Amino acid sequence: MDYTMEDNTSLWINATLAEHIHGVYFTIKWIQVITATLSILGPGSIIGYAVFQNVVKSAEVRPLFYLSLSDLLLAACWLIGAVLYRRSCQHDVACYNLQAVGQMFYISTFFHTLNYTWQNFSIMRRRLDSELYKMSEKKCCFGRITTVLSSAVPFLFTLPTLSIGNSHHCYENSSHSCLVLNVGSQITTDPERYTDTVCNGLHLYSTGVYLATFCLTVIPILVIAACSQTVVQRHLATTAGFIQDQQWAVIKVMSWRLLIFPAIFFLCCLPAVILTVLKLADYKGTNALYIFLYCIQAITAVSPGFINCLAYGWTQHVLRSLKQKGCRDVDTQTPLLRSQKKLYASMHTSSTDFRPNTVSAL
């Protein structure tokens, strides 16, 4: 009799805990719906504007275009996953494959962010050297290759998860795989659930690829951002007394862009990385800690596309305002300042004189 009462109490506690967990997951589901929708609208506006203005092939816009495309496809995967999520689809093959495709686009955003940062750094250096439109064919070819690799490499990394995982029915071991929580390494899944050796190895492979690609992209991004500030400070030091306030402001806006985008990338990916490491290390933390990290990840992991859109639109607006102010001040300039007009023109974004290579404000 005592055994029966204890057993019934245990079942009641487990049922209550299960209801609480599902309540948390449904809260995260709606967070995911909102953030994914915003991250579709943000990159979609950049893509639509670039196509409408016919500047996709521009050296400045092309890396941002493909970064926005990756952000949009990733957000679309997460939005579909949130719509499909329900209790009965915990071991659904469609959710497993959707999560694998989402991981592919997630890793792709890492590489495209690195490519975009590098391309902007190269453009900034050419502007400072008054050689904005003197790009060699070799550099153009290198830019195209890095853009292609930024999409091809994540696809190759994801192939084992799709092919081997489906052939061994690894989706039967996944839990809540339609939610953003699983993107990157199936971090909400218990490693002990993988009784199949192949599926367990695939789970570790997925986790390792996610963490490795994050490290291999965030380190160069931080190095490029630091180098950009060094280059700007050196240029300002060598041109002290020969540069106008507006020219200095344009240079600062360009350097801000090389700091803002890496900061957005790092802050939005950090919660997912922390959660992945904790699950990989089998950290026995409190439920409140994991719930907090799950909610933060649902907000941040899907948001880079939307925040990137705001950051790019703001910097482009500032550059356009500086250009218009410079045009209004032309009548008050001395002959010496007029002679510096050519230098200033090489450092701002123009949508009139060199349309194929630039883009105006959003």
Rank of each mutant, 00 (worst) to 15 (best):
N166L: 15
P271K: 03
V330E: 10
I47D: 07
V253A: 04
A311G: 07
M1Y: 07
P356K: 03
L74N: 07
H20D: 12
L17C: 12
I46A: 07
S130H: 13
I80M: 04
A94R: 14
P271A: 03
L156I: 02
Q316R: 13
I219N: 02
G81L: 03
Y194N: 01
A225G: 08
L258P: 00
R320D: 10
S174Y: 01
R62F: 15
S167H: 10
L114M: 07
I80C: 09
R87P: 05
P335W: 08
F111N: 05
S175T: 04
S70P: 01
A288K: 05
S108M: 13
A301R: 10
V55L: 03
K279V: 08
Q316H: 05
I296C: 09
N97Q: 08
W30M: 06
V180N: 04
W256G: 00
K279C: 10
S339L: 15
G44A: 07
V302K: 08
C269W: 04
L236A: 06
H169S: 09
G241I: 02
L236E: 10
L322R: 00
G81E: 05
T9D: 10
G48Y: 15
S228E: 11
N182W: 02
N357T: 13
G102K: 02
T315N: 00
Y283S: 03
L336Y: 14
T197V: 14
L293C: 07
A240S: 06
Y96I: 03
L64K: 09
W314V: 11
S339D: 13
A212Q: 06
N54H: 12
H203D: 12
V183R: 08
T197Y: 14
S68F: 05
T352N: 10
V209C: 01
L98I: 04
E172N: 13
L343F: 09
Y133M: 13
W256V: 00
V93Q: 09
I145T: 02
L343H: 09
K284H: 13
H169E: 15
Q90H: 15
N166A: 07
Q90D: 15
Y171L: 01
F155H: 00
A15G: 03
R62M: 12
L181F: 09
G208W: 06
T161S: 09
Q247D: 00
A298H: 07
H176D: 12
F266R: 00
L98N: 10
C269M: 09
L114N: 01
S177P: 12
L84N: 12
V51A: 10
H112Y: 11
V231Y: 04
N166G: 07
Q99I: 06
S177Q: 11
Q99M: 15
L73S: 05
D2L: 10
I145H: 00
F105T: 02
C327V: 10
M104I: 00
L74I: 06
K29Q: 15
S130C: 08
K134G: 05
C140N: 14
M347P: 00
G285C: 02
N173T: 04
P262V: 08
N115V: 15
T276D: 06
H317R: 14
C227W: 06
C199H: 05
A240R: 11
F52C: 10
